[in-house]
């Protein structure tokens, strides 16, 4: 209990620095996530056009997700060196995977007959994607975005090792210097941040998923 109170006091006395670190942390998470969405969603859409590309993405995507985050972060260093850009790049790489696989799965899971009906009604492939497949896949895509955002909050801690800044600074130097109050002042807000992000995005996920819970299709 005493440790928690000391941590709280540390946070209050260094509130200005805390805000800067929190801001850095959120900045890395947000930039990496937005860039991941911007790349992964279109790439997945293109991939669903070809059976081979689709299989490749799902297989490689699933395998790549077993690679530890620290391994990715560590590998970025020899490639790009140290700094904020490398940190964001590392977070971005790991954020890509859940969005990629979920977008492909979401589009694939759209009822075949729904797509057939759309094709028979005279929609072009692009119109089917835009009006039918993407809207129906949104909940699954969003679940991927939620997963990757929460992972990002954690990866951003590790990004400190390659010069990313953020809340990792307090936790990691707190551990190194046996400064328990500083460590807790960095760890607890980060844990809460991840939990809040998850709950918030879960709420948004339910919101975008309304009207999607039943696939209208074969009733027999």
């Amino acid at each position: 209990m005493g440790a928690l109170i000391e941590g709280w006091q540390y946070l209050l006395t260094n509130f200005g620095e805390f805000l800067t670190l929190l801001q850095e942390h959120l900045f890395m998470v947000a930039v990496a996530e937005l860039a991941a969405i911007a790349v992964a969603v279109p790439a997945a859409i293109v991939a669903t056009r070809s059976d081979r590309a689709k299989k490749w993405i799902l297989n490689v995507g699933n395998v790549a997700q077993t690679i530890p985050t620290l391994a990715i972060i560590a590998l970025v260093y020899p490639l790009l060196g140290i700094g904020l850009k490398s940190a964001i790049f590392g977070i971005w790489v790991y954020a890509l995977l859940p969005i990629l696989t979920n977008t492909v799965t979401g589009i694939e899971n759209v009822d075949r007959e729904t797509v057939n009906a759309a094709r028979g009604m005279g929609m072009t492939d692009w119109e089917i994607m835009k009006r039918i497949q993407l809207p129906l896949a949104i909940p699954v895509i969003f679940a991927g975005i939620r997963t990757s955002s929460v992972i990002n909050v954690g990866t951003a801690y590790l990004a400190f090792f390659i010069g990313g800044g953020g809340l990792g600074l307090w936790v990691i130097s707190g551990i190194q210097l046996f400064n328990t109050p500083q460590m807790l002042a960095g760890a607890i807000p980060g844990a809460l941040l991840a939990i809040c992000a998850d709950l918030l995005l879960a709420g948004v996920e339910r919101y975008v998923g309304r009207g999607h819970d039943v696939q209208v299709g074969v009733s027999a």
């Binding site: 954690g154 801690y157 809340l167 551990i175 807790l184 760890a187 991840a194 939990i195 998850d198």
Partner: peptide
Amino acid sequence: AGIMQTIPSIALFGLLIPFLGI
């Protein structure tokens, strides 16, 4: 159990060190 999984590992280590050491 789901909430536990969202907590960043470095943060969780940090939370446990005061009680369990390194």
